[in-house]
């Protein structure tokens, strides 16, 4: 039950920081091949940027940006991107999650195809983790009532 306080410093600071946190989340995701990082860490950062907005404003403002239905769709999309990559490898004639088969449809060799398969999988993980963090936070913070808790 987070109520809005109408504090201009906190609200404008949160609005100013959010795009930077999201850009850093994408940086952590795409540099996961070359530095510490990856889908789980980037996903938590991406979820945290949205949670910051909900804390600084309130749940109504947060749900105006990502509606509940869209969030549920995002939850499932991440898992589908992950298992869809595995299924694509299966269709192309290899084993489940054997990314070297992706070289048949990408203009690279089997080693680079495995690297690109890792990237596709990490994007799926990032989407799921970010959406689940937001969904668990909204459910727990308002005891499941979302914007009705403010009335």
């Amino acid at each position: 039950m987070i109520r809005r306080h109408e504090d201009i410093i906190i609200e404008s600071l949160a609005r100013f920081l959010t795009p930077f946190i999201q850009a850093f989340a994408l940086y952590v995701l795409f540099l996961g091949h070359y530095s510490p990082g990856g889908g789980f860490q980037g996903g938590v950062l991406m979820g945290a940027s949205f949670i910051l907005l909900v804390i600084a404003y309130d749940i109504i403002e947060g749900k105006r940006r990502i509606t509940e239905k869209f969030n549920i769709v995002l939850n499932a999309t991440g898992v589908m991107v992950f298992s869809g990559t595995g299924l694509l490898c299966l269709i192309l004639g290899g084993e489940f999650l054997d990314y070297s088969q992706l070289a048949a449809i990408l203009p690279v060799g089997p080693e680079e195809a495995r690297g690109l398969g890792i990237l596709a999988v990490e994007i799926g993980v990032e989407i799921t983790v970010a959406a689940i963090m937001v969904s668990i936070f909204l459910d727990l913070a308002s005891a499941g009532e979302h914007e009705e808790a403010l009335k």
């Binding site: 996961g32 091949h33 070359y34 530095s35 510490p36 990082g37 990856g38 889908g39 999650l97 990314y99 080693e111 680079e112 495995r114 690297g115 398969g117 890792i118 999988v121 990490e122």
Partner: peptide
């Protein structure tokens, strides 16, 4: 084998 210098990512996802 995977063209990924970060071994943790390679083992995790591949």
């Amino acid at each position: 084998e995977t063209h990924t210098p970060n071994m943790v990512t390679a083992v995790l996802a591949d």
